[in-house]
């Protein structure tokens, strides 16, 4: 049986015990959307696995009073672990279908590669190639050129938490250089980095899709960005406000972010905002040897301390 058939049967079997199952579906050839499966007939709308781009864990917090079935890829499972670890959701109300993942395609990259990608009628992945059909053309692309960034540096193709694994676990391939993009960015001069953020934030429309698509941003209507008392931010859409919001968001995710990349994927302007979160993650790895969402037991490093910090030098003036 193909993965999608295995998944469908697994969900069908568990559906009677659950209020709903979150998976991916829809008819967009370049990306699947969240599919809320309530009845068996909804199962017909399951999409193909290489389109499972979104992280469904974003829905868990607001559905925490329900009994939810959830399909997770390796990366998504880290968000679930982090939410569980922080006590934001409870394990008993969750049934996890773990889906080993060979990578998902990034519709934004396909759009950049193919001018008529918006007219695509179909997409197929075969042996390292992606075929995109449009009314006028058939485009063939290298899979690596259109895989989501996070897939290119994936270290956890297999879910780290699940009740049931769909199909076989995938062998973990060679682990690529995790922070090459960050190294390149940091090689720029300080001024160039500053200017980069100015130009990036100029394009921000302050839609808060980055925040709202983030599975770990659970403050919702109580976000300090929307508050007037305290007044961290004004509603002005100038660069200083938008930039400060990005810093605020990144800071609140320090030691929590699993780099699922939903902030960047959700951004309608294609802004490379994951970079800030990745920078904080790298520093936290180097300082405290910690990565978010890998296990349920360890304490996030910024919620604890050591009296003698191994990697922090005393500061003097």
């Amino acid at each position: 049986m193909s993965t999608i058939d295995l998944l469908r049967e697994a969900i069908r079997a568990k559906l009677p015990d659950l209020d709903m199952v979150l998976a991916w579906g829809g008819d967009d050839p370049l990306r699947a959307s969240p599919l809320f499966i309530r009845t068996e007939s909804d199962l017909e709308n399951l999409a193909a696995p290489h389109l499972y781009v979104s992280n469904l864990a974003v829905n868990l917090y607001s559905l925490r009073s329900k009994k939810i079935g959830l399909v997770v890829k390796g990366c998504d499972s880290r968000s679930v672990i982090q939410l569980l670890k922080e006590g934001l959701i409870a394990r008993p109300s969750l049934y996890i279908f773990g889906l080993p993942c060979e990578g998902v395609v990034d519709a934004a990259k396909i759009n950049r590669e193919i001018p008529d990608a918006g007219r695509a009628t179909g997409l197929a992945v075969r042996s390292g190639r992606v075929m995109v059909q449009t009314p006028e053309n058939e485009h063939i692309l290298d899979l690596d050129a259109v895989l989501a960034d996070r897939c290119l540096r994936c270290r956890y193709p297999n879910p780290l938490i699940y009740d049931q694994l769909i199909g076989e676990a995938i062998p973990v391939g060679e682990i690529p250089d995790l922070y090459q993009d960050l190294d390149e960015f940091e090689a720029l001069s300080l001024d160039a980095r500053h200017d980069f953020w100015m130009e990036t934030m100029r394009r921000c429309v302050r839609c808060y899709a980055c925040r709202n698509a983030c599975p770990l941003c659970v403050c919702k209507a109580h976000c300090v960005a929307d508050s007037r008392e305290p007044h961290w931010l004004t509603l002005e859409t100038n660069v200083s406000q938008k930039w400060f919001f990005q810093v605020l968001h990144s800071m609140h995710l320090a030691g929590r972010c699993t780099e699922c990349g939903e902030c960047e994927r959700a951004c309608p302007m294609g802004l490379p905002i994951l970079l800030m979160r990745r920078k904080l993650n790298r520093e936290i790895r180097e300082l405290f040897g910690y990565e978010a969402g890998l296990d349920l037991m360890t304490t996030p490093p910024l919620s604890t301390f050591s009296i003698e910090e191994e990697n922090i030098a005393e500061r003097e003036l």
């Binding site: 969240p34 809320f36 829905n59 839609c207 899709a209 959700a266």
Partner: peptide
Amino acid sequence: DQATAGCVRCRICAYL
């Protein structure tokens, strides 16, 4: 409820 299930309440639709 069903029409809104996946909505993450961002502002993309209105702002664009």
